[in-house]
Design a protein around this nucleic acid. Structure first.
Lengths: 126, 126
DNA sequence: GTAACCCTTGACATCAACGTCAATGTCAAG
DNA sequence: CTTGACATTGACGTTGATGTCAAGGGTTAC
């Protein structure tokens, strides 16, 4: 299939697909006229990339998963490198949550200071 | 005082101070030689901006606080506009936390799928 | 042959809060 | 009078994942 169809089926823009190719995540065969030519495996790759992006992974984070799929595995997370990325991202997310909880507490505290009556329905005390 | 001293005392770069001025947050008087001339009130403004930035506010978010201080209030959060920003940011932070918790759960679930033994020490089950 | 789509590459634009140069001016001390 | 520490404005670079436009070529249908 050509880029337009893959884009439609994967729910992404053609621009995004070309960008993935440029980043080395989605190499494309070419038809005799120079058009990119994709198959079902490529659709699976793009789906994998998309689902990883939606949980906050970068394209770099997604690379091991893509490599894993291209290596013939049925799942992108079937390789130790992918698992390692999962663990790292989990730690990053936890750190971000901690940061946000700290900020939440600080802002809530400031709000309580500035407008004591506003704090009533805020829940968290510390 | 001149920009270098304010920067040192506030713990920011001179570039940042010029940027704040450009954004209309920190107007500066000028000496006869064209140098920016700041006073203690300006230090207070910059401190306010900095503490807001560190809890994730943008400069736009900080504007009401700065305006409030410049209007003669002793605290930047003494104005209703500032309080409103607090409330909005609190809601934003809560939303971000919810998003991150969802992602955490998703990633943890994927990790458990990919490497069942890895999930043992993860705590969250859902 | 021409409209109507599809494709190609290339390159600049976006967002925020600055970092980092460049080229130049000011001023106190030696 | 020069060195050196400060200041000025202006402008491009950073980060990530695209959006968007330009200028052109390919393919199919009528």
């Amino acid at each position: 299939m050509r880029i337009g169809e893959l884009a439609r089926r994967a729910g992404v823009s053609t621009r995004a697909l070309r960008y993935y190719e440029q980043q080395g995540l989605l190499p494309a065969r070419r038809s005799s006229n120079g058009y990119r030519d994709y198959d079902e495996a490529d659709l699976k790759l793009v789906s994998e990339i998309r689902s990883l992006l939606t949980v906050g992974f970068t394209l770099e984070d997604a690379r091991p998963f893509v490599d894993c799929l291209r290596a013939g595995n049925e799942a992108g997370n079937a390789c130790p490198e992918s698992v390692e990325v999962y663990r790292r991202k989990l730690a990053e997310i936890d750190e971000q949550i901690r940061t946000l909880l700290g900020r939440r507490a600080e802002v809530a505290s400031q709000l309580a200071d500035a407008c004591p009556r506003c704090a009533i329905r805020t829940g968290a005390t510390t």
